[in-house]
Computed example of a mutant assay.
Amino acid sequence: MRPLTVRLTLPLLLLLAPIAAADTPQIPAISEAMQKFAAAGKISGAVTLVTQDGQIMHHAADGQADLESGQPMKSDTMFAIASMTKPITATAVMMLVDEDKLSLDEPISKYLPAFADVQLKDGAALERPITLRDCLTHTAGFQGSQAFETSLADAAQDIATRSLLFQPGTKWSYSPGITVAGRIVEIVSGQPLEKFLEMRLFQPLGMNDTTFFPSKQQQARTAKIYSPGDKPGTLKYSGNPYSDPTKVKGPNPSAGLHSTASDLVKYYQMMLDGGQANGKRYVSESSVAEMTKLQTGDLETGFTAGCGWGLGFCLVRTPQGVTEMLSPGTFGHGGAFGTQGWIDPKQKMIFVLMIQRSGFGNGDDSDVRKAFQTLAVDAGKQ
């Protein structure tokens, strides 16, 4: 079957109007920007959400979730959030740390013995064991894909067969370390990761559309992923290598969740409020502080200049470029398909950008993200 290619021309701008409840607060400039990106063939559409001081100041859906059928973006459209899954898995780890069931600095081989025999790619032995902290900060030295079509247990065992790129803790390299951490959550809790998160985080927070295994109904309202078409200004449908519902056999702790903007902001607000929401504590204030403080020192990290790494979260150390409007200490994560979620404690703002695209370069350093955040911060200062 030939890939769908759609050129977004000016008449289609009529289809790009925001779809949201009449009383939902909106920042018109953000929708205008998303509509222009859609018309230029850079996105099919977007759901954007901004909060400040715990209140929604903008929530809009623009463009289309499915270009072939003409299905519009809606406020409850679901998205494959890819690596935005990582901080959520890290939160599960910290819940067990709070209960003294895990320690960040103990060897992961305590739970997964296969990692006791891991060597460097040159055959050298490890100077110290790999720790859970290494896994959560991408400093373990792991290499290889974060995608898998097996059980989580088998995926973790596969990672243990790969040689390390460097001695643990000496460098930073984006890796499937959080996949290993997710498997340890299963072992220690005695529950599948998806059940642990559902019972401990998603259900209590009311995140009813956040799942590793979307139902048929949820799949029907999930935005399709598009890549650049064969001609400028066009898009063509592309697949989901991380969490294709037809292939998923186990939860992917690094990249497997599907969610909505409304669900994610509940999680981010809980983190911004020090680990509690609606009178319930999910994770200790000290664990939130540990997750959102710089863990990687002076190591060079990705994915944008001036950033470092916490536990599962990327941190803005020195705002510049795409982060220039954010405060030092802002934390968040992007996803392989362009989704972004960032929390600015100083400005008390949360930014959620939901799009689905691949092949457009570094999603963390995109013009779509920069335009969205700039317009949101400008509005927040008024």
Rank of each mutant, 00 (worst) to 15 (best):
A255H: 03
L12D: 11
G256C: 06
E149S: 12
G239L: 01
V248Y: 04
S44E: 04
I355N: 04
G380W: 00
M291Q: 11
Q356V: 05
G380D: 00
W342M: 14
N362A: 05
G141T: 01
F360M: 13
T330G: 08
L104S: 15
I56E: 08
G341N: 08
G308N: 13
E198V: 03
A255E: 04
P345Q: 10
F313V: 05
A379C: 03
R357T: 00
Q146V: 10
V265I: 08
A40W: 01
V377W: 03
T339W: 05
P3C: 06
G144W: 02
V180G: 02
Q71K: 14
L132I: 08
Q146I: 11
D344F: 03
A82Q: 14
L67M: 07
S287C: 01
G190H: 08
P319F: 01
T77L: 06
G256M: 05
P25D: 00
I19K: 15
Q55Y: 00
Y268E: 14
V6W: 15
D62E: 09
P18S: 14
F166W: 08
D263S: 07
S173M: 11
Q347H: 07
A90Q: 08
D158I: 01
R221V: 10
P72M: 09
K171N: 15
L315D: 07
G190V: 00
Q219G: 12
T9A: 13
L102C: 10
E198A: 14
G306K: 04
P168R: 07
D244T: 01
G274H: 05
T222Y: 02
S358G: 09
V6C: 12
Y174Q: 01
D98N: 14
D298A: 10
C314E: 12
E194Q: 15
G332F: 02
I19N: 15
G308E: 06
T139V: 03
V322F: 06
D209K: 09
K381M: 06
S238V: 14
S243F: 01
W309G: 11
F115R: 00
L164V: 03
V288M: 08
L197P: 08
M84S: 13
A60W: 00
C307G: 12
K280F: 11
L353S: 10
L13A: 13
L197I: 06
D158V: 03
F148E: 03
T292I: 08
D122S: 09
Q382M: 12
G182F: 01
T211N: 04
A60V: 04
A147T: 03
G341M: 09
